[in-house]
Design a protein around this nucleic acid. Structure first.
Lengths: 351, 351
DNA sequence: TTGAAAGCGCTAACAA
DNA sequence: TTGTTAGCGCTTTCAA
């Protein structure tokens, strides 16, 4: 037999099947399958024959066929409902993905990315999650009453959520697994730090108040300033622009403020600019602390930001790990429970 | 050993199949299939019956089964070999993904994201591409002699590359489809603009010179300054830090420089900071032009950056569109050819 | 230890 | 217009 090495022609060369491997190795399909899948209980001689056939043919299993029988896709969905504003001004998103990617690919799982931009995308994503393409889902940036967790539950898809999904009551009965950082504790640290600097008129710029990461940080602020003047609180939207607008409001309402806790670095950068145009020196006149410690923002503002660090990549990794664990032991009574990761203060020059 | 189907939680019913839909509607599987797939040539009465059964059962096709017969995955791989430095300091990546996502989901295709971080990841990705999970691949940020295009070719996977893949010779025989922006023309615009401002000692900070986006931009610079002093050229790495370092070098070598063309906004932001610490006013003493027009950087530097805009999202969309077109007409003699998207100057305050 | 055979859920010829 | 039927490529009983 003339056994030519693969002549690689572009176009329709049919992929080798397990059948062809078996034939070449002179064994049955079942035996070939055993070898390909870790091969316990196959005589060494046959093992080698099959392995050689695999190599020579350049065989790779057809995973649709495999999925059809194993009911395992080795793929998980990552659904991002992040409003575009943040998605594109913050490396937040990329860092999460990296953490997830690392953890998943270590377990040979793939990541299917689903971006939600408009209302109609929910339907598309819902269909996809119901379609059985993926073994689980990682959900990000849920808004109040987001339908996604319920969709996933309905089709029995194991799910882990990024950030505490906090709409009140309604969903509290069912157990949602999530990973979040210690937003409240982090905010307390920030305010405590400003206090230790002797500041007494400490304002805060919050994120959008329909997200728990925003409200939790605000709660942390209030923990230390329980009877604060409401005029010292302004709502932003996690973007530099929004932070700048909020800062301008605060200055108008309380020109005597001497410190600001901004609930994200991006907002802090916008606030910084407004402070500058208003002639306030940072940190001499107004000290400012951010949140996130996104290097490419915090280290590059003028002056560099003191901020609350959260390990975003680690959060991504944790989410993936939780999900994989859940997949490994489906009907586990001790289901994986939610995780809160710590935050810490990173001092630079703004406070 | 009866193995329980995984990814199916306790209480969740087994997913309905086409068979069960057909039974409930009182038709054959084939008819049910026709209805589910757009259903031409089915009597209205039956159509409705089947549709009702689908709705009542909450039927969603099993796509592994469908893929097995149609040989179409409705999924494409997006491979990003971006060095982490850039991935996390630049919204570049997120914008590309958005463009791709939009185009793909409009055609009901999904996006499988593969991040390459280390050498060993190439093997994993290669296996994946060979595994037949996806119908095509979109490749980003290739480095010189990157093995990815060849891997994809070997398994006959239609591929579109982001950015001109420019290793010399070697690969020039085979036709690689790519989408790139007019880097050279954009650079020329930048330099031309600086000139029109009366600047005569124009320096440039390049990206890493093993990427064509960097060398093309440098070529554009040289087009207008053919006999320039080599001391006016410094290599950066697309990060703010690298830009700052390059700027410091330039100032040391040519303290008399009066303008800088930085090959990315991120580098320009670093350069700006170094100029400031050296007491140079921008644009009075030194005018500076960036590249990319990444809003969250360019609009937020001090002063805001004049820069060369490339429409990154549009590039993502184009890549996806080219790939889909290729999938639609496989052996097309008039294969889709590469595309160069235009750039344009956006004036702000730095030049 | 190995092989034969029965599906997994679906589409697409081909018949009726 | 509809149904029958033959696979797609694989894993996994069950028997040998």
């Amino acid at each position: 037999m003339a056994q030519q090495p693969e002549a690689q022609q572009a176009g329709a060369l049919p992929r080798p099947t397990l059948e062809s491997v078996a034939e070449r190795a002179g064994v049955s399909r079942a035996t070939a399958s055993r070898v390909v899948n870790g091969g316990t209980g196959v005589r060494e001689a046959l093992r080698e024959k099959v392995q050689r056939a695999v190599d020579e043919l350049g065989y790779a299993p057809n995973l649709a066929a495999r999925t059809l029988v194993t009911r395992r896709n080795h793929a998980i969905a990552v659904v991002v409902a992040e409003p575009e504003s943040r998605l594109f001004s913050d490396p937040f998103f990329a860092q999460h993905l990296r953490g997830i990617s690392r953890e998943l690919s270590a377990a040979d799982n793939q990541m299917v990315l689903l971006l939600i931009e408009a209302q109609q995308d929910y339907e598309r994503v819902g269909r996809y999650l119901a379609g059985g393409h993926v073994d689980g889902a990682l959900l990000f940036s849920l808004h109040r009453s987001d339908p996604l967790p319920e969709m996933a539950r309905r089709v029995g898809l194991p799910t882990v959520i990024g950030g505490r999904p906090g709409w009140p009551g309604a969903e509290s009965d069912r157990e949602l697994v999530y990973v979040d950082s210690d937003n409240r504790g982090g905010a307390r640290m920030a305010v405590q730090h400003l206090r230790s600097l002797g500041r007494t008129r400490i304002a805060t710029i919050t994120g959008p108040l329909d997200q728990t990461s925003s409200t939790d940080r605000l709660d942390g602020y209030r923990d230390l300033i329980p009877d604060g003047d409401p005029a010292l609180i302004a709502e932003g939207d996690f973007t530099p622009d929004g932070g700048g607008r909020a800062m301008a409001e605060l200055l108008a309402r309380r020109p005597d403020l001497d410190a600001v806790f901004a609930a994200s670095d991006a907002m802090a950068s916008g606030a910084l600019r407004v402070l500058r145009t208003h002639g306030r020196r940072v940190p001499e006149d107004v000290a400012i602390v951010g949140f996130d410690d996104v290097e490419s923002i915090a280290a590059w503002t003028e002056p560099p930001l003191t901020t609350v660090r959260q390990d975003i990549e680690e959060m991504g990794r944790l989410m993936a790990r939780l999900l994989l664990r859940r997949l490994a032991s489906p009907a586990q009574p001790l289901a994986p429970t939610s995780v809160i990761t710590p935050t810490r203060l990173v001092r630079r020059e703004s406070a």
